[in-house]
């Protein structure tokens, strides 16, 4: 290194050396600014992508707090000591469709006559696999249907329309309307449901439910718990016919306790 070089260095750190070459400080400055902009911009975008899309329209279902399940058949007024059945599901999850189509009606009947207290946790498992928020939007649209009193029919109709492929796009929005009409909504009630769905009224709520259940360790779907114990529901499905042993299912749900051989292993 020549004396000139040393002087140049001493004069101003980072000033280009006499031998030529770019100024390290300037290049470092540019790189740091660009890197910070990219990372901060990325995080902001990520939080918007996964966060609120409803803005001021965002609401919690009537009488439900953030992260907590809905009770779609609360009007059946189950007894205080009725067995609590928790169902964790995602409209886009294929096994949830099997669960719904084999056991859904048995569970609903028991909930409708107040024999059990059914709590539904709407999760977004497939969203976290594919990106996008179709599971959250689908779940939110079902809460809108519950507001119009057609939870059960809408739930069945939307599961039947489940896309075969898991993509970030998920359900086409026309499927929600199809399910709503299939559930018997028309006129003013259909319009109210449509507005609720289009505004994403309950999207943030559904996302909060997924957060809360993940915190509790429920990361997959479907899960069914009877009085807090996971039921190995697959053991009640005939592998060939895909039909459920509804007699045993009814017995387990109404008794409020899962027999040892039907407890889901972790």
């Amino acid at each position: 290194m020549t004396t000139n070089d040393r002087k140049a260095k001493a004069r101003a750190a980072g000033q280009a050396a006499a031998s030529g070459g770019a100024n390290v400080i300037v290049v470092a400055g540019i790189v740091v600014v660009l890197a910070m902009a990219l990372i901060i911009g990325g995080v902001v975008w990520a939080s918007q992508d996964t966060g609120s899309s409803a803005g001021g329209a965002s609401q919690l279902p009537d009488g439900v707090t953030k992260g907590q399940p809905i009770e779609p058949f609360a009007s059946a007024k189950p007894a205080e000591d009725a067995p609590v059945v928790d169902v964790y599901e995602d409209f886009r999850c294929p096994i949830c469709q099997v669960f719904e189509q084999s056991m859904g009606s048995t569970i609903n009947e028991l909930a409708k006559d107040g024999t059990i207290r059914l709590r539904v946790h709407l999760k977004t498992v497939i969203d976290s696999n594919t990106g996008g928020d179709s599971s959250a939007v689908a779940g939110a649209s079902a809460v809108c249907a519950a507001d119009q009193g057609v939870w059960e029919k809408y739930h069945t109709a939307l599961f039947a329309l489940q896309p075969a492929q898991e993509t970030s796009a998920g359900f086409p929005s026309s499927d929600y309307t199809k399910a709503a009409k299939g559930a018997g909504l028309s006129g003013e009630r259909l319009a109210a449901w449509q507005k609720c769905t289009d505004q994403g009224t309950y999207v943030d709520y559904v996302k909060s439910v997924d957060d809360e259940t993940v915190k509790q360790g429920i990361t997959g779907t479907p899960v069914i718990e009877v009085a807090g114990t996971k039921l190995s529901w697959g053991a009640l499905i005939d592998q060939n016919t895909r039909r459920a042993d509804t007699a045993t299912l009814t017995e387990v749900l109404t008794s409020g306790s899962v027999p040892a051989d039907l407890v889901q292993k972790p």
Partner: peptide, 18 residues
């Protein structure tokens, strides 16, 4: 492209506040 998935993956390690 999948921030929710990335967040869930980190949360699954269960070493930091949620």
């Amino acid at each position: 492209g999948n921030p929710l998935g990335a967040a869930r993956a980190v949360q699954a390690y269960d070493v930091m506040p949620f």
